[in-house]
């Protein structure tokens, strides 16, 4: 339980990497959006999802 309490505040970052990243990659493939800078779709997803998660964690909101 102590580990969970320590990890819980980082939930948005885990969510960004664990769910949003593959979701963004899937959306890019479905909508045929080319990833920038020679990145793959999942790399793009991890950058966007992880960054968004950090913003949500420190800013307190996703939108």
């Amino acid at each position: 339980m102590a580990i969970l309490k320590a990890l819980f505040p980082w939930g948005p970052v885990f969510f960004g990497l664990g769910f949003l990243a593959p979701l963004i990659a899937s959306l890019m493939i479905t909508l045929t959006i080319t990833a920038p800078f020679g990145l793959t779709e999942i790399q793009t997803g991890l950058i966007i999802g992880g960054s968004w998660g950090l913003v949500a964690k420190f800013g307190g909101r996703w939108i």
Binding site: G11, F14, G18, F19, L23, S26, L27
Partner: peptide, 17 residues
């Protein structure tokens, strides 16, 4: 959250969302 992430990384991200 575990099921959502597992689905997303298994190729079912759109379905999970």
């Amino acid at each position: 959250w575990g099921i959502l992430c597992a689905l997303a990384w298994s190729g079912f991200a759109l379905e999970a969302a």
